[in-house]
């Protein structure tokens, strides 16, 4: 199944690359606007050799991880509490849904004033971007646990810790992982945008500076790397979801590569 998906998914990129290469060979592309594929490969090799790419990539990933981990550490417990005690939801959800509508990038000017031009403002952006998918999906996952199972917990008088470990966490694990996955995607996109607006390192910065220096080949390298890293991080969460032992044996359809692109439709509104 997975193998089929992967070779089929490669057909379109291959066609694009071949076209790109062919058009370049035939001299049919305007090199002022689109670099040739040879130039891009050349730029990629140079960026790798000079450690530039690694430096930008490492700083971008580090930023995402810090903001993302904070968002998880706060979003998951908060989501669990609101899913567990639905009576709290009317107090919090309208505010949270309001905040969710604001794109993280819109906060950049304020965050820079509050947290300065350094790392803190970028971490805050990532946190903001990742928090809502994580929090909302966790809340959704917990509130979707069938009331029949809650009744079993009540019947056998589970203490709250046992309810958490045996019912709430495993019962919502799949949805939580979906939330983490969406949160990671959101924060990766927000990060690149933030780096394009206010940074002097990172992949977003690489893209912007390449434009200023009219290095379109490096610019394309930057864009492609952003996409590739995004897919890899996404794939990690798909893999993680498949590690849930009970999910392996369930009859429900599993997420596969074909669904990656539409994954955002998995984020259901509460």
């Amino acid at each position: 199944m997975n193998k089929q998906v992967s070779w089929r998914g490669l057909v379109i990129p291959l066609i694009v690359i071949i076209f790109w290469w062919g058009l370049g060979k035939a001299g049919l592309i305007n090199l002022q606007l689109i670099p040739s594929i040879e130039q891009v490969c050349q730029a990629l090799l140079e960026l790798i050799k000079g450690q530039t790419l690694m430096r930008h990539l490492a700083i971008s990933i580090q930023r995402v991880l810090i903001g993302f981990i904070f968002a998880g550490v706060i979003g998951v417990p908060f989501g669990i509490i609101l899913g567990w005690f639905p009576g709290l939801q009317p107090w919090f959800n309208p505010t949270l849904h309001f905040l969710r509508q604001i794109p993280p990038v819109a906060w950049i000017p304020l965050f820079i004033m509050w947290f300065g031009i350094g790392e803190a403002s970028k971490n805050a952006i990532i946190f903001y971007a990742a928090f809502f998918p994580i929090f909302l999906n966790t809340q959704l996952g917990v509130s979707q646990i069938a009331k029949e199972y809650w009744e079993v917990a009540r019947l056998y008088q589970f203490p709250w810790s046992k309810t958490l470990v045996k019912l709430v966490l495993p019962g919502s694990a799949r949805t939580i992982i979906t939330g983490l996955r969406l949160g990671m995607g959101m924060s990766w996109r927000a990060l690149v945008a933030a780096e394009m607006l206010a940074a002097n390192s990172g992949l977003g910065y690489l893209i912007v500076i390449s434009r200023s220096l009219v290095r379109l080949d490096e610019l394309v390298v930057g864009i492609v790397i952003v996409g590739v890293v995004g897919i890899i991080m996404d794939g990690l969460f798909v893999w993680l979801e498949k590690q849930l032992p009970w999910a392996k044996n369930s009859k429900e359809g599993e997420l596969d590569g074909a669904e990656l692109i539409f994954s955002e439709s998995n984020l259901k509104d509460l």
Binding site: E148, Y149, E151, V152, L155, K166, L167, P170, G171, A173, L244, W246, S250
Partner: peptide
């Protein structure tokens, strides 16, 4: 002890 009509075993255990 109570035996529900549906077994209600936790599917994740």
């Amino acid at each position: 002890g109570y035996l529900f009509q549906d077994p209600r075993l936790f599917p994740w255990l």
